[in-house]
Structures are given as structure tokens and as C-alpha cells.
Design a protein around this nucleic acid. Structure first.
Lengths: 250, 250
DNA sequence: ACCTGAACACCGTTCAAGT
DNA sequence: ACCTGAACACCGTTCAAGT
């Protein structure tokens, strides 16, 4: 009998099984306690087999990070499709990042841990390529909105700034706000009295007003707009958050 | 002969010796390779003695982080004393954070690693207290500038924002920009074509313009102002950066 | 061809034994 | 009272032995 070679499909399925087991573990015990041993024990095959799929612990972490980024990219794309003005959609994209951080805190944290040269250095080429593609998809959603705002005339690029820099400014606001408050992101209110969703809302408006991106805050009720957008596009996510006992104060 | 009790002073000196050895190590080999064994080997006393000073690895990391925060706090305080308008000083504070990230990349990274509940949970009370005090000092420098801007009438708090929220907005811009680009912070230009100092400059101006904090970008040459401020307050730091072959493109 | 798990090197922490 | 370093439990990774 010819040796039955393992087909691509079942190999992929097995790899996903490892990733799922690892995610299950970090959701229960945190990334900081993730161990190859623990993952192996949660899976119906041996250490050597796991190491056939992943170069090592870091490679597995990046795989989890990629899995999470795919979830986030989906949220971004959905947000970008909201039937509102570009600035409103841009804000919704940023809030979809917050929804992600609240609903998947363990994945969010693992992603932060993986975002490091010392992790990348130990990862396989295909995994790194996949990550680049996911990043491209994320940025693409934002990029598209900026372009549309330029096309409709709601927004004009300021001197010395190109589209990429505007995208970066937007991304860094989400990262700055949510990252700094991520320890409190699951609670309604941090020890410092800051409420993530409120600060995110403020910083968004400050930046877009600074960019002269119409309509300006004084000319439009972005609070009502955001409420409507969230209920339109993310009703399921809002329900899940409510079930966590975490009410968004917008 | 009565047993000679160790005095406070030599105990502190020994503790600092451990911290210095650890910093020396991470500057050469990165936080990710820091090991209690390696620290012990670099110091003229034993493992047990090191563990008398630090509850464990995390406690040592927080000690390093506190040491770095003291350096940063000094930069902040110096920046806050620049002889310019409040908005200019605020920008200088943010740029002092960038100087810190460029000049002390290893410390910067260790600080980021330490900023996590799973580290704090394993640290001693005095160490945590010291950290709080340092944070207070950092925020105090920013807080003072905002208050002065309010007093001079250059700035009025927008509706639904208090001083703390303005401080947070400012802090989160530094964190967002520098944190996202920290992998490239030592290079002049990231792979994405973004230049940290330029993006930081842009985001600062966007936010302050959004806040209607006078003088607005259109009414004042902040580029020239920043250049002057940096040369006034941080000539030594600029020289060190130049020696690293890293020219600030402002 | 593929899988297994014992074995190895290394790391964080403790504590019995020393002075 | 203070210090030491052997000892222990645990973790990441490898690879000789199996099927």
C-alpha cells in the first residue's frame, strides 16, 4: 500500500485546532501563562507534531495574532460600509477597534505582545506574509474612506500631509487611547476617572476638526450619529457587550 | 561583638547595583533575554541576596521601569520650563518623550513591558508606590502647562472636557505615535515611509488646533519654534542623537 | 512518511546549610 | 544576622526510536 500523504486540508485543520486550543487557553489564563506544554496537552497529538506546524512559541503567537487581526479586519470592513458621511464612517471604524478590544481582550493583548521584532524574528515566512496581507486589508478600509472624503470634497489634505499620514494619524489615535486604557477597557471607568469610549470620541473629533474635515463638530451631532451607526452595523456586538455588564457611555 | 546590621545606605547602593547591571544587560541583549541568572552573574553577590532586594523578575523589571521614568520625568520638567508660549512648551514635552525613546530604546521597551497588570501583580508595595509618584510627577508637568494656558487665556476648555482629559489626549498622542513607530524610532525613516518626528509634529498641531488652543498653526511658525526650543533646552540630547547618526527631520 | 515522548538545556524561585 | 549556591519545578526545543 502506498503511504497515504497528508493532504493540505487536514493539515490546515490540525493547525487551526492548535490555534483554537491556544486561544481557549489564553482566554482562561492569559497570554503570560501560555505554554507549549499546555497547548500540547489540550490537543489530541504530540509535541513533535505541534512543532511541525509552528517554528516555536513565537510563531504560534503570531498565528493567534493573525487570527485576531482577521476578526478585526472584518469589523473594519463592516464599519466602512455604514451609510453615513465619510467622517462618521471613519469614527465608526475607530469604535469598531474599541468593540474588538472589549469583546476579545485576550486576543487584543496577544496581538500587542506579538507586535515586536523579537517575535517576528522567530516566525516563518508564510506567517509573516499573511500578517502583511491582513495589515494591508486593515489600512485599506481606512484608506478608502479618506479617498472618498477627498472625492466628495468633505475633506482636503492639509499642506505637508498625504493620505497615508492621515491614515496613520487616525490609527494612532485608536492605538493611543485604547492602548493606554486597555487595562480598564473591560470596566466602565478606569481608576483615573477616564472613560475609554468618551476619550476616543473626543480625540476623534479633535483630530478631524484639526484636519478641517467637514462637517465640523459644531455643525453636526456626531454623538447621535455614532449611536445610530453602532446600532445599524454592530447590533450583535452591542448586545454581547451589554451581556458582559459593560454599557457603552456614548 | 554586636552583629553589625546593614545600614539603609549600603542596602540601597547594592539594590542600585543590581538595577544597573540589569540595565547594562538589556542595553546589550534586549529585555526579552533578561534572566535572573545573568543579572546575578554580573553582580558580586549571590542569587539569594538579589532575591532579598527584589520579589522576583517582575519586581526587578518595575524597578528598571521606575529608574527610566525618573529620567523621563526630568526631561518633562526641563521641557516645561522652556521660555515660550504654553502650546509650544506642550509640544516640547511631547518631543522630549521622543528624545527619550531615541536615546534610551532599551529602557523605553522595558517600560512598555512593565506596563501590565500581570507584572504589577508580582511587585512589592513600595515599588508600586514609587511608580505612582513618578507618574504623578510626569502628569504634573503637563497639567501645569494646561493650567497656565487657561490662565493666560490662550486656551479655553471645550465643552464636556476637563483638564485631565486634555492631558490624556496629549499623552495618548505621544503614546500612539511613538509607540506605533517605536520599532523604527532609531532609524530616520520607517519601512512605511513615515518619519516619527514629522508625524508627532503633525498630530500635535492637529490636536491643538482641534482644541482651539492659541496661537493656531496658521498664526504661528511652530516648526521654527520647536527647533529653537529643542536647541535651547536639549542641546546635549540633540548632540547625542546626532552622534548616533540619527538626524531629527524637523 | 509520519508521529511520539523521553531527554536536554535553561530559567525562576526556594531554603537548608554555612559564617 | 546575613549570605550562599545546590536543588526543585517548570519550560522550550530536539531527535532517536517507533509504526
Amino acid at each position: 500500500m502506498a503511504p497515504r500523504l497528508l493532504d493540505e486540508k487536514s493539515l490546515r485543520a490540525r493547525e487551526q485546532q492548535v490555534i483554537d486550543a491556544a486561544i481557549d487557553f489564553i482566554q482562561k489564563h492569559g497570554v503570560e501563562n501560555l505554554t507549549m506544554d499546555k497547548v500540547v496537552n489540550a490537543v489530541p497529538f504530540s509535541k513533535g507534531t505541534v512543532y511541525k506546524h509552528f517554528l516555536g512559541k513565537e510563531d504560534l503567537m503570531l498565528a493567534i495574532s493573525n487570527h485576531s487581526m482577521a476578526i478585526l479586519a472584518d469589523l473594519f470592513c463592516r464599519a466602512a460600509q455604514f451609510n453615513g458621511c465619510p467622517r462618521e464612517r471613519m469614527m465608526l471604524v475607530n469604535f469598531s477597534y474599541l468593540l474588538y478590544a472589549i469583546l476579545h481582550p485576550a486576543l487584543f493583548k496577544t496581538g500587542q505582545c506579538a507586535r515586536s521584532p523579537n517575535v517576528y524574528g522567530k516566525c516563518g515566512g508564510e506567517r509573516l506574509e499573511q500578517q502583511e496581507q491582513l495589515e494591508f486589508k486593515l489600512l485599506g478600509a481606512i484608506h478608502g474612506i479618506v479617498e472618498e472624503a477627498l472625492a466628495t470634497g468633505n475633506f482636503t489634505l492639509p499642506d505637508h500631509m498625504n493620505i497615508q499620514q492621515v491614515c496613520f494619524a487616525n490609527w494612532s489615535i485608536g492605538h493611543g487611547t485604547i492602548g493606554l486604557l486597555s487595562d480598564d477597557v473591560e470596566q466602565c471607568e478606569g481608576s483615573n476617572g477616564l472613560i475609554v469610549e468618551r476619550e476616543l470620541f473626543n480625540q476623534n473629533n479633535l483630530m478631524f476638526d484639526g484636519l478641517q474635515w467637514a462637517p465640523l463638530t459644531k455643525d453636526y451631532d456626531y454623538q447621535a450619529g455614532l449611536r445610530k451607526a453602532l446600532e445599524d452595523i454592530f447590533p450583535g456586538e452591542l448586545l454581547l457587550i451589554k451581556r458582559l455588564g459593560r454599557d457603552l457611555k456614548i
